[in-house]
Write a protein that binds this DNA or RNA. Structure first.
Lengths: 412, 412
DNA sequence: GGCTATTTGTTCAGTGATTGAATTATTTGG
DNA sequence: CCAAATAATTCAATCACTGAACAAATAGCC
């Protein structure tokens, strides 16, 4: 409704080039086919001369390269198509979860160039030890990246808990962490990445947020606004609005697990009654399906459930229907509030989508006033269990794409 | 967390000045005391020379004027303080509600320069007739504005219902409207305002959205993110995130009335059970307090309730407590989801805040995980019943402040 | 009153990035 | 082989910001 270009900071003379670098690079990143300079010029409204100058900066800065020429189409000089560089900066993505550590490297184009998962129950060991193990894995990733010609331009770490502005993990219940000053614990270690702009070498964030970011950049043509729900032991959500992750006033948005769905229902550890988590959390679903959680590692639980449902297990189907209904009630509230048109089921929910989707859609159509005019899409996440780590690495490269001048100023 | 300046469109040569006009004007508008050119320069990071040039453009465009010099403070040449012009463009705000029409004129500085309320039950008459009456009032407002030296630069109309992108009122249940093409009905009438940029002369929007906008710009130092709840016959909410109204994918955000608060509770006309509206809607509160709605006009209901509560009426107090509890349950879900730190009670809720706030805060502290670290403020709306009309007019002038180049290009 | 320090606002040559037209480069089709 | 078509570059002109110098206006001090 408002097509304003939206200025925020003052625009100095130098910012002009700075802004256009970002505009052109973003265009190259968002295009579904590699654009030529001429196409970029018409799309952005800049002159071909300007685009050429901007692109030259991007190429010398190793952010963009010229791709193979396309097969000939019409007359005229063939276009030199531009793609994001595969040998420029890359992002290091880290994840600490209850029973595994994950590390990955993602290049500018969003390709996963390296990926390691280290399974281990992290609850018994101290945060410092967990971080040390992670750093070890990260070191290997760094070497691997270097051998592929990539430069690590930053790192992001996803944790299953609340993180404050300083990067301290205030509370990660399932991990047993409380007030863990991650940046301080990492400061003693040799830096993993180049330092670009004023951004700290490692950004710590909630894993639900990072998973949503991963989903946002997974494909070229996804929706600009959606709700990404991570169904793990707890239920977290990442909210993407207009192509940006919405973090809330303090970065603690997305706590969806305690929306009341059955008000006089089961007591929840949060103090309320009938919270979503009590019906659609992993433990609740497993219990309803008659499975003992101790029998299976957390990360295989949803796969096991999917298998059971596939074979027609009545208990499993009923458990999933109940969970889907609860989820649908909560999602309907969110959709009513934010008018989203897409809901993505991620984390443990992804493989269960075929069974969760019908009751969720059912509750939405019943409770969302506007659903009659505009249907809501419910679909599984494009990224699998690695969404958080991949999203973390992706957030690093997205920062460069959003603000290439910082990277270009790195050396000169 | 992300201090990116955030470019969206390409920046052409001329855009540079365009952007800086917006930056400087926004700064003048947001300042709590009229700033001098020198102050603006240090605040924005621009040179004093640039600021002088930009300010000159703004002054010749009648957007800014020089205020009375401040009482002398220190040494040096006295500053020439800049304020938003009181004789430049102004916004026309219109509101159609169940039992009144409202029209107001707001100048650039946000001052209400003209205000009329016309009481009449609009349910019996046709939308076309209602709009004709409104246009008549608007004509008077236009004349009044002209006599004060103001130029109407646009109009916005608030309606209690769902509005689509084209300005059609898809559904306004309490008004009995369905698919009313407001712009087409108004097109036959002489234009009320100047045409600036590409914006249609009258923008139609939901009244809850406009009320939230009004609240956003009511004071100079309000919070950047908050939830504004309009408690009328229905319950609507406007969501302000980072200083911008969040409209959702289709402009239908804020439908908070049907969040389930007592899942096995009263049946709601939406098809669900235990919806918020069934416990905190105007009719529900009145019924619980033992009042007959037919006895009192809708717009006096909440005042009457406040009087009763003041005198200690047990029924009224119990009704308000029950409503506040239901509201608190719903608000807690929203705060968990969006991590907001401020909730504004507007519309009919505003005068009832003293009684609603305690149960609302109670539910929040019980249900919001992060409330322990960061308290949530619950306060009454700064604007009274006129919030929607004032917010509508304010949205017009805010558009000019956000994009002054459009106004300046109007003549030359 | 006159002088100095101080702050504000303006002037002006200089610079950087964009602009638009002209030019070069490279291919298809006749 | 030439004309048409499209892509990319070159270059003088232009526009807005920059930085420093300068003019304006006031308070404090002798």
């Amino acid at each position: 409704m408002t097509p304003t270009p939206g200025p925020v900071g003052a625009v100095r003379q130098g910012s002009l080039r700075e802004l256009n670098l970002a505009v052109v690079l973003d265009r190259i990143a968002a295009a579904d086919r590699p654009p030529s300079r001429a196409v970029l010029a018409t799309e952005t409204g800049l002159t071909r001369a300007t685009v050429s100058a901007v692109v030259e900066d991007l190429i010398t800065g190793r952010l963009v390269t010229e791709a193979e020429p396309a097969p000939r189409s019409g007359a005229g000089r063939p276009a030199r198509r531009l793609v994001l560089a595969g040998n420029g900066p890359a992002g290091l993505g880290l994840e600490i979860n209850v029973d595994y550590l994950a590390v990955c490297v993602v290049d500018l184009a969003g390709r996963v160039r390296h990926h390691t998962v280290h399974r281990a129950d992290l609850r018994p060991i101290s945060p410092a030890d967990a971080l040390n193990r992670l750093v070890e894995l990260a070191g290997q990733a760094r070497a691997e990246a270097a051998s592929q010609g990539l430069t690590l331009a930053g790192a992001a770490l996803g944790v299953p808990g609340l993180v404050d502005d300083a990067g301290t993990v205030r509370l990660a219940p399932n991990l047993g962490w409380r007030d863990v000053p991650v940046p301080a614990l990492l400061a003693a270690l040799p830096p993993l990445t180049e330092r670009v702009d004023g951004v700290p070498p490692i950004v710590v964030d909630n894993e639900a947020n990072l998973s949503a970011l991963g989903e946002l950049h997974a494909g070229p043509g996804g929706p600009a606004s959606f709700l990404h729900i991570s169904g793990e032991v707890g239920i977290g959500a990442g909210i993407v609005l207009d192509g940006d992750l919405f973090r809330g006033a303090r970065g603690w948005s997305g706590e969806i697990g305690h929306i009341p769905v059955h008000s006089a229902g089961r007591a929840c550890r949060c103090g309320g009654r009938g919270c979503l988590e009590q019906y659609a959390g992993q433990e609740a679903i497993l219990a309803a399906a008659g499975l003992d959680r101790a029998d299976l590692p957390a990360d295989t639980a949803s796969v096991r459930l999917a298998e059971l449902a596939e074979t027609g297990s009545v208990d499993a189907l009923r458990a999933l229907h109940e969970a889907g209904t609860a989820l649908g009630i909560a999602v309907a509230s969110v959709v009513n509030l934010l008018d989203l048109d897409t809901v993505v089921l991620g984390g443990g929910y992804a493989p269960l989508t075929p069974w969760l989707r019908p009751p969720v859609l059912d509750e939405i159509s019943r409770r969302v006033l506007t659903a009659a005019w505009s249907p809501v899409t419910v679909r599984p996440a494009a990224l699998g269990a690695d969404a958080a780590a991949v999203g973390a690495a992706g957030s690093v490269v997205r920062r460069i794409i959003a603000r290439p001048a910082g990277w270009l100023a790195r050396t000169g």
